[in-house]
Design a protein around this nucleic acid. Structure first.
Lengths: 235, 235
DNA sequence: CATTAAATGTGTCATTTCGACACAATAATA
DNA sequence: TATTATTGTGTCGAAATGACACATTTAATG
């Protein structure tokens, strides 16, 4: 038992943080939920929402706790991105950061809680410099989002329950920062069989009202872990 | 400063381990380099190669150290898989495990070092039960390998510098555990423009000698982070 | 009330890609 | 020289893709 103890006893314990990249979509742009820190360290600067792992808490649970604290939402899409552990990434003390990214319906969160945390939705194109290595985390998360959305039907997580094909197209155009052909996009999306016509139409339109669809949850679950092979047209 | 100290001081420090999933290919099967532990805890059982993060060591550096210790190789393909942090995953003490996976040329490693660590190459199909949550790590790594190899020209990392198209095909057949059509495979691979005909032929053949190709490093680098869209035929 | 403008739904067509399959070339062996 | 196993390359029809046209819906306009 002494031998066992030695291996463990002589090893370093580290602070373990959890940081969350929170994506939203307002109909035009992809946005991030960032906080202007009113606490140390780096008070006054922008950062991701985060916290430390608790003694008796799984990592995923920690991410969900932190997301709930800020947005009042649970049951949202959360995925482990990766872990950042450069020796000097946190100037106060060496800290490993386990990073998750979340996709939420931007209109569904708790406004009050967001205000209390001094948080704001900021367009991807206007993201300020962030503390520590949070910039790189955001970069990597965007790559992952693009990667994932090309292959899995993940985009729906950013939209309300009922949505139109033009809305979905705008979402993909925002994710990939490129224009897509309406007609080809529609064909591709409908060919997945994931969309169910609700019979309703989008009333908030000054011109032709688009059909409101909802996800076929069943097919969604079954297709989610399979490759999807959707990709924006190459040029 | 007291405020700052409180946030940090009252948080838990955790043991941080690094575990490595090491893939190899022997020409027929995908294999894992596993160790039969001659140390506690779980002495006598099989596990991944791992270790603890050192005080002044980046995570990636730690993975490379551990890989070098076992195989004598550096400059190999290593990618962060994900981090496992369930509260009770290690019965001795709560430990977070940052997991990497590596792809190596199975004939290039240091035999002596592998023997000294009581390690063995074990076919994916015969992997014994592993300690802790290492089974799930292996499962996830295989998923990642399949995912990645379908989209990026990653398979070459498992082959010697010069290789034939039939060898490459056998590799993909092993990764996806399915048979592929020779003629379609050849067409797809050659169409990527990544292969350069060395002019040499594989002399270890009792029949028609296959052309030896090597990677076009330049194109390889440029295509690596782009989607590749190679996938085995569906059925 | 007819016209216009903007947005949506659907269709066509040529090109490319993909899967299934056939045939010729190479090299050791009998 | 025939045989056998393996490798290289070609063909063909079906499906998917990108480029593009046209008709429909709706509010606003005169």
């Amino acid at each position: 038992m002494t031998h066992l103890m030695n291996r463990y006893l002589h090893s370093t314990r580290l602070l373990v943080a959890i940081d969350c990249i929170i994506f939203g979509f307002d109909g035009e742009e992809i946005k991030l939920l960032l906080i202007k820190r009113n606490f140390e360290p780096e008070k006054g600067k922008w950062s991701l929402m985060g916290g430390f792992v608790k003694e008796e808490e799984d990592l995923e649970a920690g991410a969900e706790r932190i997301l709930y604290e800020l947005t009042g939402l649970d049951n949202i899409y959360v995925e482990h991105l990766q872990t950042y552990g450069k020796v000097n990434r946190d100037p106060v003390e060496r800290t490993i950061s386990v990073v998750f990214f979340a996709l939420i319906n931007i209109h569904a969160h708790d406004q009050e809680s967001v205000r209390a945390h001094n948080a704001q939705w900021i367009s991807l194109k206007n993201v300020p410099q962030l503390i520590f290595d949070h910039d790189r985390m955001v970069e990597n998360a965007l790559e992952r989002l693009r990667y994932k959305a090309a292959l899995h039907p993940i985009g729906f997580e950013l939209l309300p329950e009922k949505f139109t094909i033009p809305q979905l197209q705008k979402l993909y155009e925002a994710i990939y920062d490129m224009r897509l052909d309406r007609r080809n996009f529609s064909r591709k999306i409908l060919s997945t069989g994931l969309l169910i016509d609700t019979g309703e139409k989008n009333e908030n339109s000054a011109t032709k009202k688009a059909i409101l669809y909802r996800l076929d949850k069943q097919k969604y679950e079954s297709k989610f872990n399979a490759f999807w092979y959707f990709m924006p047209e190459s040029s």
